[in-house]
């Protein structure tokens, strides 16, 4: 799968509180409404101005903090095609794969706000057309790749009737 879009650049340590603020706790059963506030406390313009297919590009430890699956869910719902970061927090990583949001672990330092990117998940490569560079990404562990390819954990269990990790 090759994904195309523009980069929205964020810093290090983007917590789930920044992605999905606690003050919208009451919207957790109204995901489309919650998605309008995605990443609001990190970049107030992001939700309104991003286009479907764009990428969230961040520094280290993206998604640290609470286990709220709403965080990757609303990133996906908002239309983000993948999150690129230097590293991801553990629970967020697992949640993103479970809800079918692709994650790309790579060195994001050279990517800047507004760069045109394509991401090839299978090949594990990121092309930055603005900078004319290609980046290599770490591949997902096999177990997680299987879940992502099935379309998330529910679809995976529905398809196999059990965990089918290897």
């Amino acid at each position: 799968m090759v994904l195309k879009g523009k980069a929205w650049k964020f810093g290090d340590s983007i917590s789930t509180d920044l992605i999905c603020p606690g003050r919208y706790f009451h919207l957790r059963s109204n995901l489309p409404e919650l998605a309008k506030h995605v990443l609001e406390d990190a970049d107030a313009q992001f939700a309104a101005q991003m286009a479907r297919g764009d990428f969230v590009v961040a520094g280290g430890n993206f998604g640290l903090g609470s286990s709220r699956e709403h965080a990757p869910t609303i990133i996906k719902l908002a239309g983000v095609s993948a999150v690129l970061a230097k590293s991801f927090a553990r629970i967020f990583y697992r949640n993103a794969i479970n809800v079918g949001l692709p994650l790309v672990e790579c060195d994001t330092d050279l990517i800047e706000q507004g760069d045109e990117l394509t991401v090839d998940l299978a090949a594990g490569t990121v092309q930055d057309f603005t900078k004319k560079i290609e980046l290599k990404s770490h591949s997902l562990p096999r177990a997680m790749l299987n879940i992502l390819n099935d379309g998330g954990l529910l679809a995976h269990i529905e398809k196999h009737g059990d965990f089918k990790l290897d």
Binding site: S66, S67, R68, I91, R94, N95, N98
Partner: peptide, 27 residues
Amino acid sequence: IGADSHTCTSGALGAFATGMGSTDVAI
């Protein structure tokens, strides 16, 4: 397993306790 990141608290009792998201815990 708990759909709350601080589920690790129970680890102090000598249990393997960890936080996960809603779908993981549901399954």
